[in-house]
Design a binder for these strands. Structure first.
Lengths: 164, 164
DNA sequence: CTATACTTTCAATAATTATTGAAAGTATAG
DNA sequence: CTATACTTTCAATAATTATTGAAAGTATAG
């Protein structure tokens, strides 16, 4: 397989994967592109490679930086900003789970806590409290496990994954 | 807090959570509704509660059944189909991770394998092979861990989560 | 300070995805 | 077999989300 074909296939697939996990396609594709790039890329490089507009490239690069999985890298003698992706797969997973924990698990736990304050003593209310309570307990357990994971050491984690 | 308010809040939050994980809102909301319902609900019940159309209700109930997290339940003397959600949170998580594994991890691993067949011996190609190789290894490890999880026993899993 | 290279914002628009609801399909009662 | 209760499909449409690109903003060179 030619390099260009392989690259294209990979970027495409990464974009699709992103989409089905609620990450927009351009963002996932920029990430894919940076992952396999040896040198830092500028916004223009990204625009050209993926055939997207300046605004789109800029916004999604910012989003990737927000997620902590892409960083700016200065190139001496160049005024344009350049970007690199975190290449360490473990570090990437750590960062992603850290962010999702913050963005998605925390809010749902907050709501589950709030709605526990429901009043009344009907069957419906009892069922509701039971279910939301169990969901909350479970979410907290998962949250705790992910927290430990994001703080953990790389080797420990890989040994864990294998042992599992 | 009144039951209706709590219920509404929960359904709303579950829908939002679903959206940010790539599950459509109606589907997540129907799931939320069934989770907290003591009795099996018919398509009409769902339509009424969530104020959605018949087609929408029907399609998303089917999708939930496809995911293995909602089941039909016959009510004697009733011709309409009724539905219940799996109430066991652990079982729910198991089923969801099983499906996502099949639907998302397997395809990306397949692509990562394919693109490994890239030819050439430039820096770009070497970097590409390295990165996609590492992503594949990682994905396979996660896949393996999830597989073990989906086959595992409930108590083992909770002990695991806590130990983690 | 000024010119200019570069980045960001954002209203308009395009693309995608979800939803509707009526028509077609299916299955059960009698 | 027929009437009817119920389910499914799907083209049209609505709603949402992503993208564009030009204008405004910012920062650096000189």
């Amino acid at each position: 397989m030619e390099y260009d074909e392989a690259k294209h296939k990979f970027i495409q697939a990464w974009g699709t994967l992103g989409s089905s996990w609620g990450i927009n396609k351009a963002m996932a594709q920029i990430h894919a592109l940076l992952l396999i790039s040896k040198q830092p890329l500028s916004t223009e490089d990204v625009m050209e490679e993926l055939q997207i507009s300046r605004g789109n490239a800029n916004m999604n690069i910012r989003a990737l930086i927000d997620w902590g999985i892409v960083q700016k890298e200065l190139i001496v003698g160049e005024r344009k900003e350049h970007f690199v992706a975190i290449k360490d797969v473990w570090e990437l997973a750590r960062q992603v789970s850290k962010e999702r924990r913050k963005r998605e698990i925390e809010p749902i736990v907050r709501v589950l806590n709030e709605v526990q304050a429901v009043t009344g003593d009907t069957d419906s209310v009892r069922e509701f409290k039971k279910m939301t309570g169990e969901l909350k307990d479970f979410s907290l357990k998962v949250d705790g496990a992910l927290d430990k994971f994001t703080r953990s050491d790389k080797n420990w984690f890989f040994k864990m994954l294998l042992k599992l």
